[in-house]
Design a protein around this nucleic acid. Structure first.
Ligand code: MG
Ligand code: MG
Lengths: 600, 600
DNA sequence: CCCATGTTTATAAACACGACA
DNA sequence: ACTGTCGTGTTTATAAACATG
């Protein structure tokens, strides 16, 4: 099989104005262990890692290191060194080691490249196995610690938008509020690019994003002295950087469809090694919410087979059409390892992901299948839906829709305590009585029927739908709540007699977001726990991964690789997990020994 | 009196990124008649204007000419020439002549300057009188006409934002919808700067603004072929360019408070002549919604008397602080008179404004006075409200609030048919059933109590209020409708149990916008008339200025002059009109002879 | 492949306002 | 008391990438 005809791709990479096309691929993403010359300062550590262990990093996960361990190496010793040295690592937040085992058998890059370019080959060719993850958490935040085994996090521009990073920052706090300065600091800590190499304007951009987006609202203390930025709860996807890491690095992420886990990790590592345009985060491209081709609906017959061939390099040639290309931001590619002050002890947790078991796509009960959103096809973010009207083809769409809620809820339920910054200042986490009145209010209308409106309500002009069904884990956009009624009246617009009567009877927006808005109390996250513990010793609240809501969840997720000049144009990944049977996805505290016999 | 202690300033001028500070004042705003060398091609006309008649134009009103007529000149002859030549003028939309009479007695610039700088002097010093306005409307849109008496409209950048211009364009249509191309064309027609001198990126900016602002929504025809852009009715202020002209040029605009009408016109002309930073439109500065100093509440005692001294040159010196100043858009100052094809006949209408009778400020019944919005003082657009809590001081605020609705309603009632483009294509103006679901929905909360929350609800953090009480005629921002409930719950934000239950009992937003939203059917504009006349001969629908709603209206309006290097730092204008006794403000067809004895 | 239209993000900048030196 | 600077917040402009038809 060359390429699967079903392509529920949700995310793709997109160049942004500050990213130039003409830059050569940088060479700084892979650092090997003792095998190369520029090895990490391992001598500073008491213990040494065995030979052959390689480290890899990436700007999207500056506090995460991928550790490739040859099968000939004792895994326990590596874990011992890492857990021992985890305290000494120089980073501000929790740090993660993703452990992969590598069988030295077929490690030739050519076969990897062939495999990646042409699709997954046989399982037996895989020489990379995902072992598990070690997460080190800071215990005493203010204690400086000398530099440890690993290098500083990579100081390249992360592939997240400002809006995403601000969400990561704010959601890292238990009470989900931060001052501007704290947001600055959080971003600088987790993405040293902004501390080290970015121009000064990035703080302007942070403030601009805070003001621009309605999802960020500002709260003021009663005395008017302090301002905290929060996220509108209705719009909060509760995204954390750790959540994104989980999605990006989890083998479970690709468990359900074509490329299974080993191949994904394979591909990930391959791209990291080859310094090609990676499927996973890369500096000069960008994780953006969907905006996927309309024709690539999930269950479409492979009529347009040439749609995702390597030749689909979208229009990048109309750029020299008279308009001069102006470099907006100077792209700094190479970063000198900064000598920042390290100041945090670590607590070590070990998590294990079980190996993926390829499961068929769960087609959830199409709850709101009857009324579907009609996209006028050129607008907002696109729904993944069929161009035709056969409703049976839309089963994956509803699966995808449901997965949106599932993603949000599960992300919330899976909120690991390591994601929550523990060194928060005693900021109030309750009794915020007033919120910033955001720009506009309830004018959300309907999710609009299918695109050619099939002659129902003829002569009716319809408003272009938002679509935006991308309520996936990696969708950083605010949640569009349909709650506000105030459907703009279909009468003459030149009339002043518009009423704000809510059209509650109209079942607008049949997206599963209704699960959150209409039945609010059924979803109870860990934040429902009493929050009185914040001012003092910060008792770590560990949410048990099994949420209280027995919701069936199914998530269709995707990443698309940007096409440049190679044949690796589009690679698709999916995620699909349904029901309560996948709490293990939540990365709860699972003993390594259950899955790794080496530890027994 | 040096400067009035009550300063209900609403608008001020503000430089924007594309406007550079270092440009010298341009010299192209005033064109005199036969008195100067570069006279308009009057020879091409059959009749000649008498000597001494001066023409003035300004980029903000490119289709409007201010005609200063000496008292020694026969007014009727001037009107005859203008009405005869109005058909020949080369412009696409309606054109307007604002007629002012000038007594040659005390026309010295120094006294004018003194008067303007130090406040209004005696009435007897005024030598400019506002006579009336001639509006020429195109009769046959597609007939080209040779160039007439007057110069081409000024091709300098208008002082309106893209958002404002898009509103002007869309609201110029009866059905208030336009295609993108029509918006382009309308803006090019009314502001030739964009047709002649602007770079190509301005259309990108138009599209950007349409997408960015929630107030612009897109409707799609049932077949999905055509898209029309409309304005969310709840957010529509029904602003038209003509409305702005009225506000800018009407002597009634300043009838109620300190500076009465003659002085305002005085000042207007003075600034036009002197090429200083004008109170009225200017190219390189900008009409922006309020953002006025908080301490300058309307009826505050003059405690902070030094607040508006000429020395209040805000920080413009931190610009050389390391950041290089980059010219974003090339500022084209001088425009060659374009040789565009003229193609419209004109129908002439004559309107007259009566001379203003200074009326006291009507203090409306403070409808929702008890609960006021608390501004955390650095946010959004500021309410004009007292810093202290004395409610009696807030009477002008409520006046101002009410004026917001009054402005909108009156603007709507005063909607002159000349403002409505008559050459609209047969686009549908009814039966738009679906509207674009806008980004977010009902999360507007409360108008928040006064700033130091006066110990009511202690320990309560409050969200910074929108404020944004600037529902004036010249406020181009969308109306923030409080209709949508979904007050973000004041409980812990880390909770997922946010409910969309509307807090209807909470009287949020006591702004007079409630008059429109809560009592919708009481306000009936001319658009309520049957719209079937659009496709054919375009029967000109003249709304009678007396609206159907007996609302008391009082508008406090203001313009602030940006301070550069002279003492004319801030000038304030007010508008206040109440009740039904000011239908004459509606610029209905009032005979000139009633007010100008010269015509009798 | 080009073009018009539409969406989204980045970046620069003007300016307001309060705190503070 | 005046003045300037700085941090924070709001708003607009402009360029650009990319999607869709
Ligand atoms: Mg915001
Ligand atoms: Mg819009």
């Amino acid at each position: 099989m060359r390429r699967s005809p079903r392509r529920p791709l949700i995310l793709k990479r997109r160049k942004l104005p500050f990213q130039q096309n003409d830059q050569p691929p940088t060479d700084s993403h892979s650092q090997s262990g003792p095998s190369t010359s520029k090895d990490p300062p391992k001598s500073a550590a008491n213990q040494c890692l065995p030979d052959g262990v390689r480290f890899m990093g990436h700007p999207s996960m500056p506090a995460t290191q991928v550790v490739v361990i040859p099968k000939t190496v004792d895994l326990q010793s590596v874990i011992g060194v890492l857990t021992a040295k985890g305290k000494e690592r120089g980073a501000h937040g929790p740090n993660t080691f993703i452990l992969l085992s590598e069988s030295s058998s077929c490690s030739s890059g050519s076969s990897l490249k062939k495999e990646v370019a042409e699709g997954p080959l046989d399982d037996s060719l895989s020489n990379i196995q995902w072992l598990g993850k070690i997460t080190t958490s800071p215990l005493e935040p203010d204690l400086p610690t000398p530099m440890g085994v690993l290098k500083q996090p990579i100081s390249e521009r992360p592939p997240y938008s400002y809006m995403a990073m601000i969400q990561f920052a704010i959601n890292s706090r238990r009470n989900r509020r931060m001052t501007l300065k704290e947001i600055y600091t959080w971003i600088e800590d987790h993405f040293p690019y902004f501390r080290d190499v970015a121009k000064k304007g990035w703080k302007n951009s942070i403030r601009h994003n805070l003001s621009l987006h309605d999802m960020f609202i500002r709260e003021t203390s009663p005395d008017g002295k302090v301002s905290f930025w929060t996220i509108r709860p209705e719009a909060n996807r509760f995204l954390t950087l750790d959540q994104v890491y989980k999605v990006l690095s989890s083998s479970r992420y690709s468990s359900s469809i074509k490329l299974e886990a080993l191949k994904v990790q394979h591909f990930f590592l391959f791209l990291l090694e080859r310094r090609m345009k990676p499927l996973l985060p890369r500096t000069d491209s960008y994780l953006v919410p969907i905006q996927l081709p309309v024709a690539s609906s999930v269950l479409m017959p492979p009529s347009s087979s040439s749609q995702f061939t390597p030749s689909c390099s979208q229009q990048k040639r109309n750029i020299p059409r008279g308009t001069k290309r102006v470099r907006i931001a100077p792209k700094v590619t190479q970063v000198d390892a900064p000598s920042a002050v390290i100041k945090q002890h670590k607590e070590i947790k070990i998590e294990v992901k079980e190996e993926p078991i390829p499961a068929p796509i769960k087609c959830e009960t199409p709850k709101a299948l009857s009324k579907r959103a009609a996209s006028s096809s050129r607008r907002k973010q696109h729904l993944v839906h069929s161009v035709h009207e056969e409703p049976l083809l839309l089963c994956p769409n509803n699966t995808f829709f449901d997965s949106g809620v599932a993603s949000d809820a599960s992300a919330f339920h899976d909120m690991h305590d390591s994601e929550l910054d523990r060194h928060e200042q005693p900021s109030p986490d309750r009794e915020f009585s007033f919120k910033t009145p955001i720009k506009s209010s309830s004018h959300l209308t309907s999710s609009t029927p299918s695109k050619p409106p099939s002659n129902i309500l003829p002569e009716l002009w319809k408003v272009t739908p938002v679509g935006k069904g991308s309520q996936s884990v990696l969708d950083f956009s605010p949640i569009r709540t349909p709650s506000g009624p105030t459907v703009t009246p279909r009468r003459d617009y030149t009339t002043l007699s518009f009423s704000s009567t809510p059209f509650k009877d109209l079942p607008l927006f049949n997206s599963p977001r209704e699960l959150l808005t209409s039945a609010p109390s059924t979803v109870a996250g860990p934040a429902h726990a009493p929050m009185e513990c914040l001012h003092g010793g910060c008792s770590i609240h560990l949410p048990h991964a099994g949420g209280s809501t027995p919701m069936n969840r199914s998530l269709t997720e995707g990443l698309v690789l940007d096409t440049m000049n190679d044949s690796l144009s589009k690679i698709f990944l999916d995620i699909s997990f349904s029901g309560l049977d996948d709490e293990d996805f939540g990365m709860a505290n699972i003993s390594w020994s259950e899955f790794i016999p080496q530890l027994k």
